Amino acid sequence: MNYGQIIYTDVANGIGCRTSFFVSGCTHHCKGCFNEMTWDFNYGEPYTKDIENEIVESLKPDYINGLTILGGEPMEVVNQKEVRPLLERIKKEVPKATIWIYSGYTWEELTDPNNKRCHGEDTDAILSMLDVLVDGEFILDKKDLMLRFRGSSNQRVIDVQETLKSGNIVLSKYNDRDESRKA
């Protein structure tokens, strides 16, 4: 897996101060995507053990709330092979860190074992470690700058742990509009 960028003190892609990790590779190719260069699976730099160590260490300070993984598409099956061990390590070494993933795949697609485009042997384990999943492709015609943590109104900010407990999608309290952005 390659990655395009790591932002070690990001406040835009989740609650609090976070590390944001932009993986490379995406087959969605959403019109109006803010990060088109990461569609290419070969874009950026190779993800290595040294990079993994840097990410894990970056999560340890008290002022860091957690990790956000975006892209590209972290839930492409080929990317899941590297994402899963990273998340397992974080859960073990930095259990206070919250984990968010942005995916163009919907919850329904990711949890459908017959959907081989995005559901592989690592998918369920990854989902079990998430706090928040922002799901759904970006749709330019549904772009809404007033939304928190998402770009278009079809996307959802899902509370993954509550969703897994209830068996039904539970939207996060962060799935609202940001009224503070009004002029």
Rank of each mutant, 00 (worst) to 15 (best):
R156V: 02
L87Y: 03
L70S: 04
L147V: 00
K91D: 10
R148T: 07
I64A: 00
T106R: 06
E109D: 03
A125K: 10
P113I: 00
E108V: 11
L147P: 02
L133F: 06
E137R: 15
D135P: 06
K142E: 10
E108C: 08
P46W: 01
V157W: 02
M146I: 11
R117L: 14
L86W: 07
Y105F: 14
D112I: 12
N154T: 12
E121K: 15
D62I: 12
S128K: 11
K49Q: 15
K60T: 09
L140T: 09
T68G: 04
C118I: 06
R148M: 12
W100F: 12
Y105P: 03
E121L: 14
Q80R: 07
P46D: 07
M129L: 07
S128R: 09
R89A: 03
R148Q: 13
V78A: 14
R148N: 10
N154H: 12
V157N: 02
P74N: 12
V56M: 07
I69P: 08
M129P: 02
E88H: 06
D62W: 12
E109Y: 01
A125T: 08
W107Q: 09
W107G: 09
I55R: 00
E54H: 08
I51E: 04
V134C: 13
W100L: 13
N79A: 11
I158C: 08
I126A: 00
I55T: 05
T111G: 03
M75D: 05
N114S: 13
T123H: 02
V78T: 13
T98D: 11
V157F: 07
V134I: 15
K96T: 06
E121G: 11
G66D: 08
K116P: 06
I55D: 00
K116Q: 10
K91F: 08
D159T: 04
K81A: 13
N154G: 15
P113F: 01
K49P: 14
G71H: 00
Q80L: 02
N53L: 04
E93R: 10
E88F: 06
I51G: 04
E57H: 15
E57S: 15
G71C: 03
E137P: 09
S152W: 05
L140F: 12
L67K: 00
D62T: 11
G66E: 08
T98M: 10
V56Q: 05
T111F: 06
L67E: 00
D62A: 13
P61R: 08
I64H: 03
L86R: 08
R156W: 00
D144C: 01
N154V: 13
S58T: 02
T111M: 13
M75E: 06
D62L: 13
V94K: 01
W100N: 12
N115K: 10
N79H: 10
V77W: 01
I51R: 04
M146L: 14
L130D: 01
T123K: 05
K49G: 14
Y105W: 14
I101M: 06
N115M: 02
I99V: 13
I55K: 06
I69S: 08
E73P: 05
K92R: 05
G72Y: 05
E121Q: 14
K60P: 05
V56N: 04
D122F: 15
I69T: 11
E45Q: 15
D122H: 15
K142V: 00
I158A: 08
I101A: 06
E73D: 08
T106H: 01
K92T: 07
L140Q: 13
